[in-house]
Amino acid sequence: MSRRPYRRAVSTTSWWLARPRYIRYMAREVSCVFIGAYTAVVVVGLVRLSDGAAAWGAFLESLQAPVSVAFHLLALAFALYHTVTWFNVTPKAMPVQFGEAQLPGGVIIGAHYTGWALVSALVLFLAGV
């Protein structure tokens, strides 16, 4: 007997290109980079605001640059992608069972969207919009 099990190498850099589902997964994970960057922009904005009206005005001006608009659209797309894909799997992560009946997944997903809308409305209300 001469066993010699062969272990195939797994690429550490390009493995996620192998299947569409891995690409979708990576897109969801990568969304954190854009959301992080957006958070940094907001923090910069706060600093500029504390620097006075002129600094704030210049900051608002810079946001209107094409590069900035493109970045915000991209960040929005990734944030939405993350939200939708994440909410879609919530029935799996948080199933609700009443007796023998299972709460339909749509209800759980719907509850998340409702919660999201309510929190957003609250934030907007506090912001005085």
Binding site: R21, Y22, Y25, V89, K92, M94, P95
Partner: peptide, 21 residues
């Protein structure tokens, strides 16, 4: 939570869901 395990499961066991729970 890649979720690939649940996609390929031949008996729809959904291991990904089990792990999140």
């Amino acid at each position: 939570f890649v979720g690939a395990c649940s996609d390929v499961c031949p008996h729809e066991v959904d291991p990904a869901g089990a792990i999140q729970q």
